[in-house]
Design a binder for these strands. Structure first.
Lengths: 100, 100
DNA sequence: ATCGAAGTTCGAAGATCCTCGTAGTACGGT
DNA sequence: ACCGTACTACGAGGATCTTCGAACTTCGAT
């Protein structure tokens, strides 16, 4: 139940972040977290299988976009807003402001 | 010498833009254009073959990130800053500000 | 009119990615 | 102790992506 591995701020790479955001499912996860942070991604009603969801959340976590904490049998995800804003000011807001 | 097909502003999709930016070569192209706009990508000294370069520039163009105009035997590329800033304010600046 | 330079098109090879099902682990509650 | 829930690990299939070389087109210059 140890904490999961996350990149430090100075290990985050822009290419990995962009790649993580460049998927429809992961983008919906990020949007949802921006709306209601600190939530289990399994309860978002995305239309994918549990194993697919694990893959996407891991991609976001390893890219440094989200932080994941175990709580009971669930995993609570939250946006790494401070880190992303510090590294790429405006990026996250620009993505979230996207009409499409 | 027909102009090449470009998406209108309202046809640009955030997922396509992010995917276009999520490649090291294309990111270097975008950075270079941010530094010196209206330039032929062939003269950037990226270490890829001409056909690979064509592929990347087309990806950027079709995503709506760059505008490409034929001039002589060359293709002049320029960042679609206004469109991107209007759609996703802060995104491009955030990406360009990226230390890594 | 011929030549070279700049780019494109068309495969093709190899890598990466997204998705899933199956099997398994970890935790909380009865 | 048992069960159900939430999630993970490990493939595998199929799609997409990146890269390239070879052959071709287009344009400007000689």
């Amino acid at each position: 139940m140890h904490t999961l591995p996350h990149p430090e701020r100075d290990e985050i790479r822009i290419a990995a972040v962009l790649h993580a955001l460049a998927d429809p499912v992961r983008l919906r996860i990020v949007r949802e977290l921006a709306r209601a942070d600190g939530v289990s991604c399994g309860s978002m009603g995305l239309g994918v299988s549990p194993s697919t969801l694990t893959h996407h959340v891991r991609t976001l976590r390893e890219a440094g976009v989200v932080r994941v904490q175990p709580r009971g049998t669930s995993r609570i995800s939250s946006l790494r807003r401070e880190d992303l804003d510090a590294l790429y000011p405006g990026l996250l807001d620009g993505v979230l402001a996207a009409p499409r």
